[in-house]
């Protein structure tokens, strides 16, 4: 075991590749182009979705619009899937990513995050009859999540005695709950209302809070000017309440105190 681990490490250590040509600072480029390219995944309602006229909508989309307006440039939304949000950023196909990216240390090694601009209240939910008050109550039970979300990593790390069942997106998760493939599930608080509206008979409710995840705007490494501008923009808009208002419109709840606090640091 140990030898193999060593070999793997040795084989991959320090392999670098000179890739992108040297660039001027991205913030000046954006201003010069009079256009900012923001990548967002439109399948993570209510952060990114389409409205009934098939226009991009959701809290991340609205925040992107506000940001572009304040920067005085045009907004170009780059359609992305969940797994290509970061590659789009790294290869310069998008300038920034606003797409419910939760800030974690491992991820921060690969991309830079702005200070938190929003958050995600993560909960365990289930039908009325089922009793679950803490992670311990999930022991031996099947818990559904959307794959690669923060709830997924959180439960995988903490609820080791539960069977975690992962679905590809929120709609599939919702279908799994509706069709009875799973009862308990980890999700963003705002999702419960959406799923309930489609399946009133399941009478879903939040059982307990897992954690509040702070969401950051993703920027390619090595763009200090852009990052600094984003940080001050986020703080200003947390202070003046505009970000909070957008969150409330789409999620039905206020931003968490720790997010708002970031605006005053």
């Amino acid at each position: 075991m140990k030898t193999l681990k060593f070999l793997v490490l040795a084989a991959v250590a320090g392999w670098t590749l000179q890739a992108m040509p040297a660039q001027a600072d991205l913030l000046s480029d954006i201003k010069a182009a009079k256009k900012i390219r923001i990548s967002t995944d439109l399948t993570i309602s209510p952060y990114g979705k389409v409205d009934d006229k098939m226009q991009p909508s959701g809290s991340d989309v609205e925040i992107g619009k506000l940001l572009a307006k304040d920067l005085g440039v045009e907004l170009e939304l780059v359609a992305t899937t969940a797994s290509t949000r970061i590659p789009n950023l790294q290869t310069g196909k998008a300038d920034i990513t606003i797409s419910s990216l939760a800030i974690t240390p491992a991820r921060a090694e690969v991309v830079d995050f702005s200070v938190p601009y929003a958050d995600q209240l993560s909960v365990i939910a289930g039908p009325k009859g089922i009793n679950a008050k803490s992670i311990d109550d999930l022991e031996g039970k099947k818990v559904a999540v959307t794959r690669s979300t923060t709830q997924d990593s959180d439960l995988t790390a903490r609820a080791k005695k539960s069977q975690i069942v992962r679905y590809e997106d929120d709609a599939t998760l919702s279908l799994a709950i509706a069709s009875g493939q799973a009862d308990l599930f980890g999700t963003a608080f705002a999702q419960i209302a959406t799923i309930n509206a489609k399946n009133p008979s399941r009478e879903l409710e939040a059982k307990f809070t897992l954690q509040t995840f702070l969401l950051g705007i993703g920027v390619r490494k090595g763009e200090p000017e852009l990052l600094a501008w984003l940080n001050s923009w986020v703080k200003e808009n947390l202070r003046n309440g505009k970000l909070g208002a957008i969150h409330k419109t789409f999620h039905g709840i206020d931003l968490a105190p720790e997010t708002v606090k970031a605006g005053f640091n």
């Binding site: 969940a82 797994s83 590659p87 790294q90 491992a106 794959r147 690669s148 979300t149 990593s153």
Partner: peptide, 12 residues
């Protein structure tokens, strides 16, 4: 792969 990619952001 999708889970590891999302945890580490090491897509490539």
């Amino acid at each position: 792969a999708n889970v590891i990619q999302s945890d580490t952001y090491r897509s490539f």
